[in-house]
Simulated scan of single mutants.
Amino acid sequence: MTDLTQDLAKLIRLTGDRAKLDAKANGTYVVYKTTEGQIVREYSTGKIEKMNEQDFTHE
């Protein structure tokens, strides 16, 4: 990996960590894609819930 790629990977990881801290402080959740390709919600309690297509639609 180049230094630029390593720096970018570090920034992405830190951004995710910050999002989790903000979610915990506000009693909300973060949404992300796992390495297996599944979209999940991770609550501040540590509970992880898989999302499906119906969860993506807004009315």
Results as ranks from 00 to 15, higher is better:
52 N>Y: 14
56 F>A: 15
2 T>V: 06
32 Y>V: 11
7 D>S: 14
25 A>E: 14
52 N>A: 09
11 L>P: 06
8 L>V: 11
17 D>Q: 15
17 D>F: 11
34 T>S: 04
36 E>P: 00
13 R>Q: 14
2 T>F: 10
50 K>M: 05
5 T>A: 13
23 A>L: 01
4 L>E: 13
25 A>C: 04
59 E>K: 13
23 A>R: 05
20 K>Y: 04
22 D>P: 00
15 T>S: 11
26 N>V: 00
21 L>I: 05
47 K>C: 05
10 K>T: 13
8 L>C: 08
37 G>M: 02
39 I>H: 00
31 V>A: 11
28 T>V: 04
39 I>T: 05
11 L>G: 06
12 I>N: 12
3 D>E: 15
11 L>D: 09
10 K>H: 08
1 M>H: 13
21 L>D: 11
33 K>G: 01
22 D>Q: 12
39 I>S: 00
16 G>I: 06
7 D>Q: 14
44 S>Y: 14
4 L>N: 07
12 I>V: 13
21 L>G: 01
10 K>R: 15
45 T>L: 07
43 Y>R: 02
4 L>G: 07
15 T>R: 10
44 S>I: 01
8 L>R: 09
51 M>Q: 15
18 R>G: 03
13 R>E: 07
49 E>F: 07
35 T>M: 09
58 H>D: 07
17 D>W: 12
35 T>S: 13
7 D>G: 04
36 E>Q: 05
14 L>Q: 12
15 T>H: 13
1 M>C: 10
44 S>K: 01
51 M>F: 11
18 R>W: 08
24 K>A: 14
34 T>W: 08
22 D>Y: 06
30 V>K: 01
4 L>R: 10
42 E>L: 01
47 K>V: 02
48 I>H: 04
49 E>K: 00
4 L>M: 09
58 H>I: 10
51 M>A: 01
45 T>Q: 05
43 Y>L: 09
6 Q>R: 14
53 E>P: 01
42 E>H: 00
44 S>N: 12
25 A>P: 00
2 T>W: 05
18 R>K: 07
11 L>N: 06
9 A>V: 07
54 Q>K: 14
47 K>F: 08
36 E>F: 09
23 A>D: 06
52 N>V: 10
